[in-house]
Computed example of a mutant assay.
Amino acid sequence: MIRAAVLAIVLQGALASGAYAQAQTQPEGVGYFAGRWHVVSRDPDGANPIEVSYAIEPTAGGAWLTGQAASKDGSLSSRDMWGRDPLTGELIRVIFDKSGTRGEVRSKGWEGDKLVLEGEARSKGGTVRVRETITRKGPQRFDAIWEAHRDGKWTPYAVEVVTRRT
């Protein structure tokens, strides 16, 4: 249950077509995500694959990106917003899924090809600390690992391979 809720949060990303270098400029730090993506998410042991279409495009004059994700089987549906906190400068991602779960994760920014976002997912069942670690594999692919903080340690619950569609 938590996997589905957090997965929906994970899958709501940023997409609007464009070249890798171009996408880096709008908005700063998350423009890479703009475009259309195919996501395959699995449990950490490789089981239970879920295929998701994810589209991200600029909104609000280009200061933000908005994403929409939906699984082929209809089990997952979410929306998200990517941008920069105007006060702290942090990259932020706010995710809403069809179950009513809302998540917000933040990052100081990219370190090479790695972006680590941490925050919370809130649902009817309570609040869970979550972390998404994105590793850019080039202009056409990134991998993401979603973790929940339980019993004093980070535990993976979803592993995603995300490929840009043309």
Rank of each mutant, 00 (worst) to 15 (best):
S17R: 09
S17A: 09
S17Y: 05
A19H: 06
A19Y: 02
Q22W: 06
Q24F: 08
Q24N: 10
Q26L: 08
E28Q: 08
G29E: 07
V30P: 00
V30N: 07
G31L: 03
Y32G: 01
Y32W: 13
F33L: 14
F33S: 07
R36G: 09
W37R: 09
H38L: 13
H38D: 14
V39I: 15
V39D: 12
V39G: 02
V40K: 14
S41M: 05
S41Q: 09
S41R: 00
R42G: 02
D43W: 04
P44A: 10
D45A: 10
A47V: 05
I50N: 01
V52I: 14
Y54M: 12
Y54D: 08
P58V: 02
P58K: 04
A60E: 07
A60M: 06
A60Q: 07
G61E: 01
G62N: 07
G62W: 05
A63T: 15
L65A: 07
L65R: 03
L65N: 08
T66N: 04
Q68A: 13
A69S: 15
S71H: 14
S71Q: 11
K72R: 15
D73M: 12
L76P: 03
L76I: 12
S77D: 09
S77Q: 15
R79T: 14
R79S: 13
M81S: 11
G83E: 10
D85A: 13
D85Y: 13
L87A: 13
T88D: 07
T88Q: 07
G89C: 06
G89Q: 08
G89N: 10
E90S: 06
L91H: 00
V94L: 13
I95H: 04
F96L: 11
D97N: 15
K98I: 06
K98Q: 14
S99D: 09
G100T: 11
T101M: 15
R102Q: 12
R102N: 05
R102M: 11
G103F: 01
G103N: 04
R106E: 05
S107P: 12
S107V: 09
S107N: 13
S107H: 14
S107D: 12
G109P: 09
W110K: 10
W110S: 07
E111R: 14
G112S: 11
G112Y: 13
G112M: 11
D113M: 03
K114V: 15
L117Y: 02
G119W: 00
G119Y: 04
R122V: 12
R122W: 03
K124N: 12
G125F: 08
G125I: 01
G126C: 09
R129D: 11
I134M: 12
I134C: 05
I134H: 08
R136D: 14
R136Y: 07
K137G: 04
G138C: 10
P139V: 13
Q140D: 15
Q140Y: 12
Q140W: 10
F142C: 04
F142I: 06
F142S: 00
F142T: 00
D143V: 00
A144W: 00
I145Y: 01
I145N: 01
W146T: 10
E147M: 08
E147R: 08
E147L: 04
E147F: 05
A148Q: 12
A148W: 02
A148D: 06
